[in-house]
Amino acid sequence: MSTESLALPATTGTAPPERRLAGDLAIWVFICAELLAFAVFFVAYGVARARHVDMFNTGQLTLDRNAGALNTVLLITGSWFVVQAVARLRGGDPGGSAGRLLLALACGGGFLVVKVFEYKAKFALGISLSTDTFYMFYISLTFFHLMHVLLGMVILALLWNSLRRGPGPTTLSSLESGAAYWHMVDLVWIILFPLVYVMR
């Protein structure tokens, strides 16, 4: 249980000993910080929307909901593969685990492709950060999230590489940490999609 080396002292008294956090404490601290960042962004969006309901509703209608929904499917499918990758490594099958990571990476790649086409269509219309507050949020939020998808893909690629070269004693803990991060990226999009693309 590698997380033990990072555990904060004496806060675990209430939890039964067999409960454990999948992944390293450091990555969870990081995830919390990320969630906080997105929470601030989401709440700011909500407040700004409340002040300009018409502007937000008009802007939202111009967004490509199909692209948004497709990207949701790609992300949750990627997460599903990552879950399988963790299970396979626990089951002593690093090869199968690496394969599932590749599939997850492919989903991430698909997300990027869809996003690029979506942005291209918007920028072709001359839409920018300064168009209005709605588009400012649309571009900022989705771009900030996109950076997280990219970082998640880098992490998955590194994990894939270390699985391919043969797992060591810390590989499972690393995989769990990377998986938790990838799921966090998914979790954020699950809020972002209905909020920015659908809710009116």
């Binding site: 675990t12 709440v43 809020i191």
Partner: peptide, 29 residues
């Protein structure tokens, strides 16, 4: 997916709390 079901309650509370907080704020806004 994040296996919080098996994690210490504090961590469950953090992430679930985040979800309730964010969706709640958005609904209120």
């Amino acid at each position: 997916f994040m296996e919080l079901r098996h994690a210490p309650r504090l961590w469950q509370a953090v992430v679930a709390g985040w979800l309730f907080f964010v969706t709640g704020c958005l609904a209120a806004a």
